[in-house]
Amino acid sequence: MTGLNSNQRPDFAAIAQWVKRDAHVLDLGCGDGTLLKYLQQARGVTGYGVEIDDGNVLECVKNGVHVIQSDLERGLAEFADNSFDYVVLSQTLQAMRNTERIVREMLRVGRTGIVTFPNFGYWKNRLQILRGRMPVSENLPFEWFNTPNIHLCTVADFEKFCGERGIRIVGRTVLTDGRAVNLLPNLLGELAVYQFGG
């Protein structure tokens, strides 16, 4: 695969448009390395993925992505201060036990952080709640009893979180079906993509 399909991880395209050419990138929870591989080919970036799962580590090796097998909950001790242009955490923030710590770590090792997460405030999620059920959707595919997502939040929640901690939001794209939503993003946006600095 040389590019990204439009129907595959729409947040990847949003991330890619922000990443400058030849940047040094750290992709936390990089999965099979698809994003990094794409950024390497399309933007000439260098960098590493961090992944805990054996199967994903193997896929990264097959994909030609430099991967470091590690548990993000342990922090990023292997990485020196200010050693990356971008630190990406895609669709993983909501599954982290210590949310604040990982955001701080991202800003310690990198100049710019990029996170993506499913917007819990999306109207379809709200509707399911109103119907008395926990939301299950393409972006939230798990049932309440088996979900790894322990810290779900809304667009408004995340911005409040950053504001209270002096974290500067420098870019925001909220997507529904891969398209940017500008009107009422906390209600109409399904997937949030943020770029922030310290």
Binding site: T46, Y48, H66, V67, I68, Q69, S70, E78, A80, S83
Partner: peptide, 15 residues
């Protein structure tokens, strides 16, 4: 691994 990362070496690490 850390020392290699400090040098931006092409390192892969599996545990």
């Amino acid at each position: 691994v850390r020392a290699l990362l400090d040098n931006r070496a092409q390192v892969t690490y599996a545990e």
